[in-house]
Design a protein around this nucleic acid. Structure first.
Length: 261
DNA sequence: GCCCTTGTTACGCC
DNA sequence: AGGCGTAACAAGGG
């Protein structure tokens, strides 16, 4: 599902195409996904840039800002081409009936109009005017050790739940949270506040090292605890100990019974 | 045909 | 007041 890596790939995937482009018209819109006023603002607008904070994408236009959130199954298609690979838990095809917002866009390079499609089978994506990014925590791709330590120190909740809290850190979802906890050797059930300096440093190191690797590989499903690994009851790839499963922070959590303490 | 999946929000409780 | 846990939503896939 779209976590910070997928959103960054989506941003990069259309940034050049859309920079300086003009939106000619809205070809399709879904009132559940697309908020009031969005289509009026975007029609005729010139796109200046694409910004991102955590999982929140921001289309900056000459008439205002439009926030795009991909939810669980949303992604961009340009004409018939996906900007990222298949999503874990996605539908596996691109049927037009799952297009929730389709723009006819005129790129600045004169190639002629293209269709920008927000493709979202489960309709958990959202497009809004002037997204409130002020409440989001620091971006996961630019998180400093000091920021991480400060966030964890004031929370009694399980560290897994805090990593998922977008107001604490913006961008981590269920798979990335499990992945960085696995690499750092921290038990997801631990109270965030109980981590010592070494453990915070290990967690920060995992975030800084693994996210760029997975970004290059194509997304949050490319880690050790991939969706396949999560489903099958496989042993821990590091030490062969049994992998545990439980609901933590309201989400299915997978961790190693031996090396995560 | 039931149950699983996750990002976000609403809500109850303490 | 605010932190925390749980449920609800959406809907295709197994």
């Amino acid at each position: 599902m779209p976590e910070v890596l997928e959103v960054e790939l989506a941003r990069r995937g259309v940034a050049d195409l859309l920079s300086g482009a003009v939106v000619r018209r809205v070809l399709r819109t879904d009132d559940l996904v697309v908020g009031p006023g969005v289509d009026d603002l975007i029609t005729g607008a010139e796109i200046e840039s694409l910004d991102r904070r955590g999982k929140q994408l921001v289309i900056v236009t000459d008439r205002g800002r439009v926030g795009v959130h991909f939810g669980m199954t949303g992604r961009w298609l340009v004409d018939d081409v996906s900007t990222i690979g298949e999503l874990a838990y996605g539908s596996g095809n691109d049927h037009p009936r799952w297009d929730r917002w389709v723009l006819e866009v005129e790129p600045a390079d004169g190639r002629g109009p293209v269709r920008l499609r927000l493709h979202d089978p489960r309709r958990l994506g959202r497009v809004v005017l002037e997204p409130d990014i002020g409440r989001l925590g620091p971006d996961a791709l630019r998180l400093t050790r000091r920021q991480l330590a400060a966030v964890l120190a004031r929370r009694m909740a399980p560290v897994k739940a805090v990593l998922l809290d977008q107001e604490a850190i913006a961008g981590l979802g269920n798979m990335l949270a499990d992945e960085v906890l696995w690499w750092s050797g921290v038990d997801p059930r631990r109270a965030a506040r109980s981590l010592n300096d070494d453990e915070v440093a290990a967690l920060h190191s995992a975030i800084k090292r693994r996210l760029p690797v997975m970004l290059r590989r194509g997304g949050s499903h490319t880690g050790v605890l991939s969706p396949d690994a999560r489903r099958a009851d496989m042993p821990c790839p590091r030490d062969g100990a049994p992998l545990m499963r439980a609901t933590i922070g309201g989400r299915t959590t997978v961790w190693c019974s031996a090396h995560q303490r």
